[in-house]
Write a protein that binds this DNA or RNA. Structure first.
Length: 282
DNA sequence: ATTGAGACCTGTCGGC
DNA sequence: TGCCGACAGGTCTCAA
């Protein structure tokens, strides 16, 4: 489930019941997710008020009145539920909020994370410290993307999954954005930048495609209609490429152990890697 | 310093 | 029907 759009959708769902509310009771029904919970987890939350609920990449951040921040990551299979049903299997954490709502965290695979850190030291939190720009932020554009990709020799698809390059993009939307931008997932990340790190046109197209794909996914998530999302290429091996005028067929390929879906016709590696560019300075 | 492979954990789905 | 392997939208660590 959770890449940036899904996490943002969760944030928007939780915000009304958590923002300004107090943790009345915290139930930890299992001592660990991907990592053990921080010590005295429930006690440190109880009685605290949520001053703000924000998102950074795939993390949800609850700013607490105790000057600590609750970090939540959904991993591969995490989700929140707002109801009063009895806890079932894989319901690992239950928050009873003063707003009257019960927030239940469910995570079958337990790749999720819950952590507490002093808000003043939030920036030093390892996963956040090295995290790249927010793709929906104003400062993320072709130039920023090119800078982040310059000098990376991995395939561009693999680079997009690296949270240090762009925050919040995962396996689905990496494939989606590359298709929309008409870029091959196999070309080197550095191929969208000049040797000096300046953006090539592909960098602008890709940055715009990332924004567009994420925004439309958020809109779909937020829509009350719970219909299964339709993807351009993800999980569509053998189907026709959605690009207008393209007669290609989606293929699947393995990159760094993850599935990539793309159209070999309209996503041909543009530039054969080394396009000699005129003298450029660093 | 990068990069790839393996590990973590559980559920589901397709094939035999 | 039932079993078994392959695979799943994410990180983290380790070794080359």
């Amino acid at each position: 489930m959770p890449e940036l759009p899904e996490v943002e959708a969760a944030r928007r769902e939780l915000e009304p019941v958590m923002h300004g509310a107090r943790f009345e009771r915290v139930l930890v029904r299992r001592p660990d997710l991907r990592r053990p919970f921080p010590r005295r987890f429930a006690a440190r939350l109880s009685g605290r008020t949520v001053r703000a609920l924000t998102r950074r990449g795939k993390y949800l951040l609850a700013d607490l009145s105790s000057d600590e921040t609750l970090l939540m990551h959904l991993g591969m299979s995490g989700s929140f539920r707002l109801d009063h049903s009895d806890p079932g299997p894989h319901d690992h954490v239950v928050f009873e909020m003063s707003s009257g709502t019960v927030v239940t965290f469910n995570d079958p695979r337990r790749f999720g994370v819950m952590d507490l850190v002093a808000t003043l030291r939030l920036d030093a939190y390892p996963a956040l410290r090295s995290m790249g720009l927010e793709p929906l932020g104003d400062d993320f554009d072709g130039a920023a993307l090119a800078r982040a990709c310059a000098r990376r020799r991995t395939p561009i698809k693999v680079a997009l999954l690296d949270q240090r390059v762009v925050a919040g993009v995962g396996n689905i939307y990496a494939s989606e954005a590359l298709n929309l931008a008409g870029l091959s997932p196999r070309q080197r990340a550095s191929s969208i930048a000049t040797p000096g790190g300046a953006p090539k046109p592909a960098a602008y197209r890709l940055a715009a495609a990332i924004k567009r794909v994420l925004r439309s996914a958020i809109a779909r998530q937020t829509a009350a209609t719970y219909r299964q999302s339709r993807f351009r290429v993800y999980d569509r091996e053998g189907e026709p490429c959605p690009t207008r005028g393209c007669a290609g067929t989606i293929v699947r390929l393995d990159q760094a152990g993850r599935s990539t879906f793309y159209c070999p016709v309209c996503q041909r590696a543009q530039t054969s890697i080394a396009v000699p560019t005129p003298r450029s300075r660093r």
